[in-house]
């Protein structure tokens, strides 16, 4: 019982951390149909920005300052997203899929280079705020408060995004553009502006995820790639562009990964990839089928 509980808990932790990164990724794919390699890079920049904010404020911080640090990261990266849409994404509309994939890879490389230039190659890290640096015992299970906090954040972001897309005026417009950009344009919608808004939102989510997940990582310029692969798996399995699909896929893959590691502890990281490959073979369109952006 203890083992099952802990394994599920670890799986959920993996799932929500990955979902935080994948949320913005799937949003951009749903609307712009660009698989954004650079997402991992901007996630990393978010982590570094929030690290800088926290160091500037003096290291071990109360919870609300840590949250503000993550917010700042979200805003900064969101602004970067504005620039990226203007300079790059806007020009990728008529380009072959393979080429736009490669263009976003170039952006990822750029992020890595800039991070090396500004923050250097050394591993950096800060402690989570004291409130989140303890452990809760539940029966004989021990659960780090930081992990619980990340799981909560993942659920909050998911619910927030779902509500935003389903209920708000802007969310509806986004769905319209995702369904048929040409018709939306004919109806007089400013499609370009909705694209821009989507990109900024997605990048801000990447930055926020970076800020939130930062205390758990040692920061290095390779950070971008690690989460990116997991997030790719999640959005592909979730059926590209579906937020609900990404959320479910994150949980499925997280549980498979943590149970796999429980039975074969010498191979961490391999089960999520295996599961991804096998599920895609059986059901290539992902678990949410053809549904887009819901």
């Amino acid at each position: 019982m203890y083992d099952v509980g802990m394994t599920v808990f670890n799986g959920l932790a993996w799932a929500m951390a990955t979902f935080l990164v994948a949320a913005g990724l799937t949003l951009i794919f749903g609307i712009l149909h660009i698989l954004n390699f650079a997402h991992g890079g901007f996630f990393m920049i978010g982590a570094y920005v929030s690290y800088t904010v926290m160091i500037a404020l003096g290291g071990a911080l109360p919870l609300w300052l840590y949250l503000i640090g993550a917010m700042v990261a979200g805003v900064v990266v969101g602004l970067l997203g504005w620039a990226v849409d203007m300079l790059v994404f806007r020009r990728l509309r008529d380009v072959d899929d393979a080429y736009s994939l490669i263009a976003t890879y170039a952006l990822l490389l750029l992020c890595g280079g800039v991070v090396q230039l500004i923050w250097g190659l050394n591993y950096l890290g800060v402690m989570p705020p004291p409130v989140l640096n303890s452990v809760i015992f539940l029966g004989d299970m021990f659960m780090p408060t930081y992990t619980i906090f990340i799981i909560l954040c993942g659920v909050l972001v998911y619910v927030g995004l779902e509500l935003f897309i389903a209920k708000s005026q802007t969310g509806r417009l986004i769905r319209v553009v995702a369904a048929d950009p040409w018709m939306a344009q004919l109806l007089g919608l400013n499609v370009k502006r909705i694209y821009l808004f989507t990109v900024i939102l997605s990048f801000a989510l990447a930055g926020l995820a970076g800020g939130l997940l930062m205390p758990n990582q040692s920061l290095s310029p390779e950070l971008g790639g690690i989460f990116l692969l997991q997030a790719f798996g999640v959005i592909i399995l979730g059926g590209m562009g579906s937020i609900r699909g990404a959320f479910l896929a994150a949980i499925v893959l997280g549980l498979i990964e943590s149970f796999g590691v429980y039975f074969f502890p010498q191979y961490p990281g391999i089960f999520f990839l295996l599961a991804l490959a096998i599920i895609l073979l059986i059901k290539p369109e992902g678990i949410m089928g053809r549904e887009q952006t819901a």
Binding site: A106, L108, G113, L117
Partner: peptide, 22 residues
């Protein structure tokens, strides 16, 4: 000699190629 500079040079070149001279 300069860490990060090679990544930046390559990526800017690559972006230029993809966007301007495919």
């Amino acid at each position: 000699a300069m860490q990060g500079l090679s990544d930046i040079t390559v990526s800017v070149l690559l972006l230029t190629v993809v966007l301007l001279i495919p």
